[in-house]
Design a protein around this nucleic acid. Structure first.
Lengths: 108, 108
DNA sequence: ACGTGATATTGCAATATCACGTTAAATTTA
DNA sequence: TAAATTTAACGTGATATTGCAATATCACGT
């Protein structure tokens, strides 16, 4: 097999999972942290500081972009990334909601 | 390649990623929710309510167990699972910390 | 001891992911 | 226009994940 049977789960369950999945790789955690630290950050800077090849970083960036967590600004020949803070907030809320509801269920 | 270069990342980055990875599949989200809802829940109940085969559920349970999120109680021939609330709390804290710190960085 | 129900393990096929070399597209600079 | 720089896209090999059937194990009742 190898695929996920998304259709048997609720929209919220799929949403929590897809957000979490993006956070489920240390390179993507590192990328998100660096972009938010440096405000504007291009691909090359990430390649140098993280130590993975450019195509690999680019691929991880694409996955973070997929869930809408990145904004792009073109400045000359550089493409600068920054965090979409509204989306980050949304992401945090969705994941935290899962934890809160689970904890409430556990304690009742 | 196909493997993750964990050694180039910090312990915290790897921790956030490994917790998130476990939450990165809707079946595991559903399993965690059902176990916390029903307090005690055995494998068979999950198989019936979720609609995946028993080995698949068992495999997902093993991954959730790996990060210490499950407790087991044997009652007769039944094995009941419940949530390790301390670990759930820890997990929530680690993930939430990542979000909080990222947001702080974005806003400064 | 035997059968039964519940769960774990094994082995497999299909697919996804990770990492990278190479190439291509776009833009700046000479 | 040509060269240089940056990043996305494509292709590929290696590994991991998902899901399941078959089997093994484990605990209980008879």
């Amino acid at each position: 097999m190898g695929f996920t049977k998304k259709h048997i789960f609720s929209d919220n369950q799929n949403l929590v999972a897809s957000y979490s999945k993006v956070l489920g790789h240390p390179a993507r955690i590192s990328i998100i942290q660096q972009i938010s630290d440096k405000k504007h950050c291009n691909c090359n800077q990430l390649v140098k500081s993280i130590g993975l090849a450019q195509p690999t970083i680019s691929q991880h960036l694409a996955e973070i972009r997929k869930i809408g967590l990145l904004k792009q600004t073109v400045k000359g020949k550089n493409l600068f990334y920054s965090i979409n803070t509204e989306k980050l907030n949304d992401c945090r809320r969705i994941v935290n909601d899962f934890f809160v509801k689970t904890q409430v269920s556990c304690n009742k």
